[in-house]
């Protein structure tokens, strides 16, 4: 998951299903750029329901790719998501594989 793509294999082989899913890739991309991102921001940006987003966050948390921190600001509950080092590495590997895949497709056309 964290290794750089091996160009001898077809890049599709190395795609990680946990990361490759569109919404989860979006969560990782936003989390990487924002460093720390709040649940409501993710929900708005990815245009998801709270329940749907929670499911995807659980998958990523179970895979060790994100940390979830719950707290309060005043009386308002807020949930913050931070990428773990494994999450950063998984995102970088996924993007590398996608770029290799695109390059292969463009080579053949």
């Amino acid at each position: 998951m964290t290794a750089s793509p091996d160009t001898s294999d077809h890049p599709v082989i190395g795609l990680d299903e946990v990361v490759h899913q569109r919404v989860r890739l979006g969560i990782l991309a936003i989390g990487h750029e924002a460093r720390r991102v709040e649940f409501g921001y993710l929900r708005d940006q990815l245009d998801l329901t709270a329940g749907n987003l929670s499911k995807h966050l659980s998958v990523l948390e179970a895979a060790g790719l994100i940390d979830i921190e719950k707290g309060y600001e005043g009386k308002r509950g807020r949930t913050w998501v931070t990428l773990t080092p494994a999450g950063d590495a998984a995102l970088a590997a996924e993007i590398s594989r996608l770029k290799v895949l695109i390059a292969r497709v463009e080579e053949k056309t």
């Binding site: 890739l25 991309a29 940006q45």
Partner: peptide, 17 residues
């Protein structure tokens, strides 16, 4: 998918500024 990632990261950058 890559363009989605670029669009999302671009939006985050704009929101941070």
């Amino acid at each position: 998918m890559l363009s989605d990632v670029r669009a999302l990261t671009g939006q985050v950058r704009r929101d941070q500024r």
